[in-house]
Every structure is written in C-alpha cells, then in structure tokens.
Amino acid sequence: MRSSVRHRSLLERAAAAPHVVWAILFIVAPLLFVIYFAMTDAEGNITLKNLASLADYSNIFLLSVSFAFIATLICLLLGYPLAYFMSRASKPARRALLLLLMLPMWISLLIRTYSLMALLDNGGLLNTLLVSLGFERIKIIGTGGAVILGMIYDFLPYMVLPIFTVLTKLDPRYIEAAADLGCNGLQVLGRVILPLSLPGVISGITMVFVPSISTFYISQKLGGGAFELIGDTIERQFQHPSTYHTGAAISLVMMILIIISVAIMNRFSDNGGGFVV
C-alpha cells in the first residue's frame, strides 16, 4: 500500500480524477468562497467586522446548541436500547426491524417533516382524533418540543445504525468472559458491552448532532416561525446579497465548532480502536 502512494500509476491517477475534480468543484471551492466572503466586506476589502458581528447571534447559537443537544441525548436514550434489542433479535426479526428503521430514510427528509406537520397540526390527524375522543386540542406545532421531536424523528436512524453495527460485531466471547468473571446481566452491559460499543455511540452522536444543529427547515416547518435556529439565520442571510458576508461568517464559525466537537468525540473513541466518523 505504502509504495502505491509514492508511485501512483497513470491509470490510478486517471481513475481518481473524477473524484478529485468533484471534490475541488463542490467541496474545496465553496469552502474557499465561504472563507473569502467571511473575511471581506461588500467592496471586497479584508475585514473582521463580519466575525465581530457574530456576538449579536449568540442567543441563536445557544438555542441551536441546546435543541441539538436535547435531540441527540433523546436519540441516544431511545436509540441505544433499540440497537441493543435489534442486535439480540433472531435473524429474521433483525432483518424486519432493520427494514422498518431504514424505510423512512428512503423518503426525502423534507417530505417526512411535512408529514409530521400533517400529523401534529392544530387541524391535524392527532388533534382530530383527540377532539373526536372528547379531549382538548393540544398545540404542538410552533413549540420547541415540536422542533426537537422533528429532529429526533428525522435523525434517529443515524443513531441506531452505527450502534447496531458495532453491537452485532461484538464477539459473544467477551460477554461470556464477563459472565464467567462474575458479572450479572447489568454488569456485563455496563462493563463490557457499553465500553466496547463506544465507537458506535460516538459515531451516532456525531451523525445526529451535526445535522440537528444546522437544520433550518425543521425549525421553520415545525417551529411555526417561533424559533430561529442558526440554520435559519444562515439561510436568511444568503437570501440577500448584502448579507452574504455575515452568512458566510456564521457558516465558518459553525464549521469550525463542528470540526472541533467531532475531533473531541473521536478522541473518546481512540481506545476503541481504529474508527473514523
């Protein structure tokens, strides 16, 4: 492997070319644009004003982080037991559960969010049902809870799948060894299964937290406009050419924050052995 890195054949270079072009066009170039816009004003002069103005958005940052944090935590609390249960199920049951979990993922995120609206709206299915049963209508859409629920609903599979994968690959002999050394079921879980599935947990946390913190349509559709998250702010800034620069600055800071948190997360899983998000 190492030698092929040093002397790549022409064919190998040719095979990699489409990917390199793609990466430059759609990843590297936009990134450079973001950095450029973040560091310049409307006349193209270099300035730190955009970054300095971010202090005005600290409340939105805070709200986004806390919503994403709560959603991720609940996803973890729901997702881990589900993944554990699935990994323990018989093969046919496991396949059926996996299909059920994956099925919504084949539908566009946007459509799923709209369908959640249809369910939870004041005139939606849930409230119609409640009224017909003689209960009061509950206002769900437009609350913070609805936004968090949307995040959980949309991103839960991303928590379950990596944990499930790690758990199914766990050598059953570790569990037997723990039982042999005196662990009851709960101790086996706490001292062996949990630590050994940490890479999956870290992966799941990252895969839920990152899209949750940057979402804008979930908060718009389910928050009823009452909650502005950082994703909404960025979207709004990019709708007017005059505020491109602020939008770029917010994006840049977001990116840096996410990269830092992913790096910290990967630190934790270092002990678990070669694992990358």
Partner: peptide, 20 residues
C-alpha cells in the same frame, strides 16, 4: 445456575481478553 454464580473460571479459546 448462571455462569456468574458458579465457582469456576474459564480460560477461553483464543483468550477473549477485553480489548478496552
């Protein structure tokens, strides 16, 4: 009696040492 309540311990084939 489950394994954890037996007064026996096992040296497993291919050891099964805890990697963490």
């Amino acid at each position: 009696l489950p394994p954890y309540r037996r007064q026996v311990n096992t040296v497993f084939q291919r050891y099964a040492l805890f990697p963490h």
